[in-house]
């Protein structure tokens, strides 16, 4: 029996401005260790909103969320930050990097923050991640001297630095051309298979989704379907 890493129980979410709107309604599912899951659905159906809740950044919701067996509802912001730091790697749609720092520092910071390894050790690990993503030559560049695809790979390297159990990504290929999208997919696939990390990706790209293990489809804030892709895995 595989370990359950993410457990969503009856999650509901409202927005109150300009008027009360329900964006998520009674969302429940479990994601196990090593699964590569994609979330799809029409624009505005609540995918990002769900991902922010699952990432513990958004705490204003109904229902319960367990990350790696730990209920998050009653945790303090400080404890949630620690959970994010240790267990969740997040990749944004718009490759968010700290523009004031070099590539290598961007990758290192969450690792130094975790404090499990010495700074030299973290630096070494950061180089490994960059090598994995084929951008170790850019390590000392400033983070805004990179191309979009390179930045996205740096963001993935940063998400990987603490060997998190879960990687979440919100449309990681949304801004990339086909070649780069392919690259990102391959990286995720590899991580999932080799490092046994759980991956949850929100995507618009049906080709991308069809190649994952499992697709959760949302529609108007509810789960429309949940299961392996209907078209065979490519």
């Amino acid at each position: 029996m595989k370990k359950t890493l993410i457990e969503a129980q009856h999650i509901g979410k409202y927005f109150y401005s300009p008027k009360k709107v329900q964006v998520l309604n009674d969302i429940s599912f479990k994601i196990d260790e090593g699964e590569f899951v994609s979330v799809i659905g029409k624009s505005g159906c609540g995918k990002s909103t769900l991902l922010y809740i699952l990432s513990t950044m958004d705490t204003e919701y109904e229902g319960d969320l367990k990350i790696d067996g730990v209920a998050t509802k009653k945790k303090t912001p400080h404890e949630l930050a620690h959970i994010r730091n240790e267990k969740i790697g997040f990749v944004f749609q718009f490759h968010y990097l700290l523009t004031e720092f070099s590539v290598i520092k961007n990758v290192m910071f969450p690792g130094i923050k975790l404090g499990k390894y010495s700074e030299e050790e973290v630096e070494h690990q950061a180089y490994e991640r960059l090598k994995l993503l084929g951008i170790e030559n850019e390590a000392l560049k400033n983070s805004n001297q990179l191309s979009g695809g390179q930045k996205q790979r740096v963001a993935i390297a940063r998400a990987l630095i603490n060997k998190p159990k879960i990687i979440m990504a919100d449309e990681p290929t949304g801004n990339l051309d086909e070649g780069n999208s392919e690259l990102v997919f391959d990286i995720f696939k590899e991580i999932c298979a080799e490092l046994n990390q759980t991956i949850l990706v929100v995507t618009h790209d049906n080709d991308f989704a069809n190649r994952t293990d499992r697709i959760i489809e949302l529609s108007d804030g509810e789960i429309l379907s949940d299961g392996p892709p209907l078209i065979g895995i490519g």
Binding site: P77, A81, N85, Y96, L98, E100, F109, P110, K113, L114
Partner: peptide, 16 residues
């Protein structure tokens, strides 16, 4: 603001 958001998303707490 962006940098603060990134720091928080990657596990830095409000206190940090």
């Amino acid at each position: 603001m962006d940098s603060i958001a990134i720091l928080k998303a990657t596990g830095f707490s409000g206190q940090d």
